[in-house]
Design a protein around this nucleic acid. Structure first.
Lengths: 221, 221, 221, 221
DNA sequence: GATGAATGAGTCTTCATTCAT
DNA sequence: TATGAATGAAGACTCATTCAT
């Protein structure tokens, strides 16, 4: 009843961090359970607030979902833009760096979980899937394609179809990233292929396949 | 009292075909929307029956889901068992056939949709995911590993780590299969990489990477 | 396909007995589980026919319920009418016989279960309850009241209020009958009061209470 | 935009009183209609809340049912424990008080309805019936038996079988209590036996039957 | 007549969303 | 702002009833 100004703070957290905490909790749960099976009450609880508070920051479950996607993707887009543009490196080295970076920033990050989530919900949320496609997949693909094209133009790479090759080069990493958030939990850890090893071997194969003297004739355009 | 003696019957008795029709409808919807977002009434409607009829054949939504998984997987398992065992072919040819077969029977079939579904629901249905893992993924992986091992032993392939290579060789096809049932709907058809082309190029790369004289030194074991 | 007249009978039971078998099965289940919790499919199964057949004989679940009540009650009504009318016996003896008969024909029969059923469903089926009241309870009460009145008139019984006494004299037997079909299943048999003993003791008490010289002053009218 | 600033609130926050209101509504309806025929929406409506609110306080229909039973019984158990222990009264007086109290606190209270309900649902909810048996019936029976035993030991009562007598002494009141909640609604009020009169007469009869000089020889043990 | 496959109205239950406090 | 009690639309599931065979 006292209106004393010296009462101890009832809420510890700073309100500015609320949305971020909610988004983090929501990302975890959406990835773990899928969109429909995630209950907002649980998101709120994991973020340490009440159900009603969530609605102060996000208008609906769908809003929250989209915010999670945007929030997770956007910084990665920025990272992408800055990386690997005009580089003095040899194309082979550029490609090696691209794949290693991709794994570090995307595969090994929470983006793998997000990818699984979006793949699963693409039918129910086409706009979200399109956003992901336009903002993440397409730009990545373009960078990769342009590296391959540059290498071919300079005679550093064998003449392959860049778009096909781009899919082939990224697929093992992308699948591994998705897998980590679903099926991998079912294999005992000692049987799983270690990502670093997969990455290293994959890069070697890719560069071997692209060597200008490689005889992979069917891949020539 | 009757206004017509030739009215069409309100329904037909088709005990034999009902389960298959329901399973087909359910597979479509589960793949399209995911487990939670699929309404049983809609499954029934798509199969041309009423809600109650579905319950004559499947005890619950979860039962239906598991039946769909089992029903889709089992014939493929049989197909798998029969394929690619003791073959007189050269290992390179064997591998080429394996990948082409895999795409034909698995990637291009409804299994792609099922894989997406299971990847998405692994967290909610660990038993189903395990079933898929044990009955589909593991056997496939073993066959592929054994082909690679055979090739290495005979000196037909370069000495790579077979389990790592197996992941690398199957990933582009698996991801394409999953993709077909989610993100692909978002790209205009003319921009999508045609599966046949992807397959052909991929096989060429794989065989190039495995050539005993290939210089992919990092992949040696 | 052959229309031979010598084929073995597909249905063993005679159709005339079907309704009785259905009623018997229904009585058992209604008593055991109550009206709502009894499924018609189970009634049919217990009677050895299919669900559809039940509807050849009874138009609805409610119809079946009412038929069960009527069918169980009616023969007892007839028995009642014939019993204990003009008898040369002493009133005490008449009362003793009435109570013993009541227990034998009503309490110890399936009527106890029916009573429990009707008591339970009186709110949902007032017509059924009224039927039971008018055809069973009221006539019994009247007979009992008339015996008591006769005894009082002849100076064989102390002057009690016959309607109150009738309730008191029948209640222990009626409750025991109801109890047998519900709570009794929960006590170990050796702890239950044996009905015969209860009956004997009760009759003794009743007759003692009615002895003209009894000093139960409060019961005088 | 607002057409009025004084519209009444759509609902109130009454966390404290909700459960009790819901239990009261549920007791009424369960007694009136039985377990299965009671719809939760109607319980909620009678308590002045919506269907969903009920689930904030009770996890399921069965939970609600058990809570109703527990809630109705528990205070009566406490009342029972306090009553009729070591009393300086003569045994006849003790018994008179016990029966009068029983009627006042149990027969005339909502316990009559509960007893009907439990008798009806004993087959479907054996645990509930056992709870009722152990917590209500058995303790009452014991108190009554012990009063009768005390009376016999002191020579105040004729030597009867206490367990049989206990059933006989309580049955008319118990049946009247059950009846009040089912069949009684069918008799015109002027024909029903008034409970007070029944009680008074019954007590007189009981005490007469127990008088040491009573000649109810058959009841001797 | 007999069967049991098919139907769909009726209920329980969940959970996103609102709003009094 | 923050809370969490209250709401009610939506969906799984049951079972009395119908009707093609």
């Amino acid at each position: 009843m006292s209106t004393s100004t010296a009462r101890s703070p009832r809420w510890e957290r700073r309100k500015e961090s609320r949305p971020a905490e909610l988004l983090a909790a929501a990302l975890e749960l959406f990835v773990e359970r899928g969109y429909a099976a995630t209950r907002l009450e649980e998101v709120a609880a994991r973020a340490g607030v009440s159900k009603g508070t969530l609605y102060l920051y996000f208008g609906s479950k769908e809003d929250l979902f989209k915010a999670v996607v945007r929030d997770t993707i956007v910084p990665l887009i920025d990272k992408l833009r800055r990386g690997a543009e005009q580089s003095p490196l040899a194309s082979a080295e550029l490609l090696r760096v691209f794949l290693a970076d991709w794994w570090e920033h995307f595969g090994a990050s929470r983006l793998g979980g997000l990818a699984k989530l979006i793949v699963a919900e693409a039918g129910n949320f086409p706009e979200v899937a399109r956003f992901f496609h336009d903002e993440v997949i397409a730009p990545h693909s373009e960078v990769l394609v342009s590296i391959i094209e540059r290498g071919i133009e300079r005679g550093e790479f064998a003449p392959v179809d860049p778009r096909v090759a781009a899919h082939l080069w990224i697929a093992p990493l992308a699948l591994k990233a998705i897998w980590t958030h679903s099926m991998d939990a079912l294999s005992p850890p000692e049987l799983r292929v270690a990502p670093e090893r997969l990455l290293r071997t994959h890069i070697d194969f890719v560069l071997a396949a692209l060597r200008p003297d490689a005889a992979a004739t069917g891949a020539r355009r």
